[in-house]
Computed example of a mutant assay.
Amino acid sequence: MTTEATLPSTSVSPTGRQVWTRTRGILLALVLLIAAGIAIAAVQSGTRHGRLDPRSAAPHGSRAIAALLAGHGVSTRVVTTLDEARAAAGPDTTVLVAVPDLLSDGQQSRLRRATEASGGRTVLVAPNFPSVSGLAPGVTAAHTRSFDTTLSPRCSLPAARRAGTADTGGGIRYATTVKNAEACYPSDGLPTLLRIPQSTKGGDTVVLGAPGILFNDRLAKQGNASLALQLLGSRPHLVWYLPSLSDASAADTGERGFFDLLPSGWLWGTLQLFIAAALAALWRARRLGPLVPEKLPVAIRASETVEGRARLYRKANARDRAAAALRSTTRTRLAPLVGVPVIQAHTPEALLPALSTRLHGAEQALHDLLFGPPPGDDAALVTLADRLDALEREVRRP
């Protein structure tokens, strides 16, 4: 029996050009990612500290205002724990709390008692709900933020009037029930800066809704430098408190969870995104229904259909399905040639004996060819197709 292919095998190994075409997108993405990482590292290599840090020279750092205060005889000291901030509070000291929202309820109460008893000034930078109420009783944060970044004072506070317009907008607005509070830089009727004097000790609390006047890249704009200098330089000493989640004092009964630290606007924004995603999915979802036959506008050659399906099989690495289709079609064509009904063409017990008698060959070899396992690679699949063609030619030979 002659069942081996006589035609040369077709090469299916990808060429170098094909490999480059397939992988160049991934390589380009990796190069861009590496370049972006190097650029970010280069930009931040000289910056050891972060946002609102008086030691940082980054655009959103505050080294510039610290240097400006030093030139006016005000010393700046950075602390990272609540105990250090409480111990440093005094009548000749301004305590600036850079991120009040990181403080737990217990930390807020302890810090407020310490600053009220000290008689100094406390500056709260952009406190949101509920930290602003804990650190400045009688003050609440508005649910909407101000959109105008540059605002006019519109108040009698001397520091604000001397500074003039400043970048106090674009942040949180406040409402207060304190009668003698000075409300400055209003946006849509609500102030973005509050000064609340204390009834005793002569101290006060300043609530600043936007940190822009403290940033390095915005200090020289408008009246930012003047306003920041007057708010932070009223005492000879400035304690710059950078709260940290690793502070041991945070482990108290008033510790808040992750969602408590998120502003309410973020929660509402996330809910809106989920609703928008659900509506988009509903809009783009596939509509299931009965199949509708459609006439093709042009006639397509059978060879093009075969080549298209073959490319799909190759792209999906579906060698098992391709081999099964080749064997099934070959068995269907061979069965009538050896006198086997087509209905039994896919039964080895009916087809193989008839083929073996016709070709005078080994039945086991025919079984492996027509009913064997799927090929392991593309080359084996091409070899299988050649052997099936050779078998069919052998059976059709007179």
Results as ranks from 00 to 15, higher is better:
Ile300His: 10
Ile300Ser: 11
Arg301Trp: 11
Arg301Thr: 11
Ala302Gly: 13
Ala302Asp: 10
Ala302Trp: 09
Ser303Ile: 12
Ser303Phe: 08
Glu304Ser: 12
Glu304Cys: 07
Glu304Met: 06
Glu304Thr: 10
Thr305Tyr: 04
Thr305Leu: 14
Thr305Cys: 12
Thr305His: 07
Val306Gly: 09
Val306Trp: 08
Val306Phe: 08
Val306Arg: 01
Glu307Ser: 07
Glu307Phe: 05
Glu307Trp: 05
Arg309Val: 04
Arg309Gln: 08
Arg309Asn: 11
Ala310Leu: 11
Arg311Ile: 04
Leu312Gly: 01
Tyr313Ile: 03
Tyr313Arg: 10
Arg314Lys: 12
Arg314Leu: 12
Lys315Trp: 10
Lys315Ser: 04
Ala316Met: 15
Ala316Val: 14
Ala316Gln: 15
Ala316Phe: 14
Asn317Thr: 15
Ala318Asp: 14
Ala318His: 09
Asp320Gly: 01
Asp320Gln: 07
Arg321Thr: 10
Ala322Glu: 04
Ala322Leu: 03
Ala322Trp: 02
Ala323Asp: 00
Ala324Ser: 12
Ala324Met: 05
Ala324His: 00
Ala324Asn: 08
Ala324Leu: 02
Ala324Ile: 06
Ala325Trp: 00
Leu326Arg: 02
Arg327Tyr: 02
Ser328Ile: 00
Ser328Pro: 05
Thr329Arg: 11
Thr329Ile: 07
Thr329Val: 10
Thr329Gln: 10
Thr329Glu: 13
Thr330Met: 01
Thr330Lys: 04
Arg331Lys: 01
Arg331Trp: 01
Arg331Phe: 04
Thr332Gln: 00
Thr332Phe: 08
Arg333Asp: 11
Leu334Cys: 09
Leu334Trp: 02
Ala335Gln: 02
Ala335Asn: 09
Pro336Phe: 01
Pro336Ala: 14
Leu337Lys: 01
Leu337Tyr: 05
Leu337Val: 03
Val338Ser: 02
Val338Tyr: 08
Val338Cys: 09
Val338Met: 08
Val338Thr: 13
Val338Gln: 00
Gly339Arg: 09
Val340Phe: 03
Pro341Cys: 14
Val342Ile: 07
Val342Ala: 14
Val342His: 05
Val342Lys: 11
Val342Gly: 07
Ile343Thr: 14
Ile343Trp: 09
Ile343Glu: 15
Gln344His: 06
Gln344Leu: 14
Gln344Thr: 08
Ala345Ile: 10
His346Ile: 02
Pro348Arg: 09
Pro348Leu: 11
Glu349Ser: 10
Glu349Trp: 01
Glu349Leu: 02
Ala350Glu: 14
Ala350Ser: 15
Ala350His: 11
Leu351Phe: 05
Leu351Trp: 02
Leu352Phe: 07
Leu352Thr: 07
Ala354Leu: 10
Ala354Trp: 04
Ala354His: 05
Leu355Ser: 00
Leu355Asp: 06
Ser356Asp: 06
Thr357Pro: 06
Thr357Gly: 04
Thr357Val: 15
Thr357Arg: 06
Leu359Val: 13
His360Arg: 11
His360Ser: 14
Gly361Lys: 00
Ala362Pro: 05
Ala362Leu: 12
Ala362Asp: 15
Glu363Ser: 10
Glu363Phe: 03
Glu363Leu: 07
Glu363Thr: 13
Gln364His: 04
Gln364Thr: 13
Gln364Tyr: 05
Ala365Leu: 12
Ala365Ser: 13
Ala365Asp: 08
Ala365Asn: 04
Ala365Phe: 00
Leu366Asn: 06
His367Trp: 13
His367Ala: 13
His367Gln: 15
His367Met: 05
Asp368Asn: 15
Asp368His: 15
Leu369Asn: 10
Leu369Ala: 05
Leu369Gly: 01
